[in-house]
């Protein structure tokens, strides 16, 4: 099979970008989408042209590095998978496929299809942790955690930090990402002491980073490769409300070291 690609090319954040059309060589339907880009890039390099810059690493859906908006959908046509787990058998011979970066105010383009997602890290710095000093932890089984609670925390903890939820949202909100982290830690007994302060600190950092507000349209959940549920946003909103009521200072937990 062969396809035609319309790919966003942009030298850097300052330069304007544009779509460039490429007709691929003969492809195998068992190739992954990224392997198809590899093939296109190999061709470009052989011709002395600069390859299309795109993010990737593990190529098995767990590191959260790959991105791409494929035909308007972050992580491509399928639910519950990342771009690197998308295979050409999902497309037809002769298709035209539009490939763009994750677009959001908080995610400036670095080059071509690569965007800067460091805002997500900064939200984590604000409070995405449980403050325990190495060496001070109690015996692991001293605090039982009901199986269903551990499973629920794990459902939230699966977030790979890819930012597709942001790219899918018309407001470029990062609520699903933040809710996943807050819920993961906030559900576990170990996360209780900092629960309210964590929620407030992370949400306020999210606002500072320029992410938009949540209007509960659910497009984030629909594209999330890990199936993070919107219910976690509701849970986070409750935690945030309680945090405001409690009036705990959102001061970074770490400052109290």
């Amino acid at each position: 099979m062969k396809v035609t690609l319309k790919v966003w090319r942009q030298k850097d954040a300052q330069s304007p970008g544009r779509f460039v059309t490429y007709v691929t060589p003969e492809l195998n339907p068992n190739m992954s989408f990224l392997e198809m880009l590899d093939v296109v890039n190999e061709d470009l390099i052989r011709r002395g042209e600069e390859p299309i810059a795109f993010d990737h690493d593990c190529r098995e859906g767990i590191c959260g590095t790959c991105s791409l908006v494929i035909n308007g959908k972050p992580h491509g046509p399928h639910r519950g998978v990342t771009t690197c787990q998308t295979y050409l058998r999902s497309f037809k011979d002769g298709d035209t496929i539009v490939v763009e970066p994750f677009r959001a105010r908080a995610f400036p383009v670095i080059r071509d299809l690569i965007v800067d997602r460091s805002a997500l890290d900064r939200i984590m710095w604000a409070g995405g942790f449980i403050s325990v000093r190495t060496g001070s932890a109690p015996e692991a089984n001293s605090l039982p955690v009901p199986k269903d609670v551990a499973e629920r925390a794990m459902d939230a903890a699966q977030c790979i930090g890819c930012g597709a939820c942001v790219a899918a949202c018309k407001n470029a909100s990062a609520m699903l990402f933040v809710a996943a982290k807050i819920s993961h830690l906030g559900l576990l007994p170990q996360g209780q002491p900092e629960r309210w302060r964590r929620a407030r600190a992370m949400i306020e950092q999210m606002d500072r980073e320029g992410f938009g507000a949540c209007t509960v349209t659910g497009s984030c959940e629909a594209v999330c490769p890990k199936g993070i549920s919107l219910e976690f946003i509701a849970r986070m909103n409750r935690d945030y409300a309680v945090a405001l009521l409690k009036g705990d200072s959102p001061v970074r937990a770490a400052a109290a070291l």
Binding site: I130, S136, A157
Partner: peptide, 12 residues
């Protein structure tokens, strides 16, 4: 011990 304290949702 340390990983449980840090919030790793190990299977239970």
């Amino acid at each position: 011990d340390h990983c449980v304290a840090l919030g790793v949702p190990f299977a239970r």
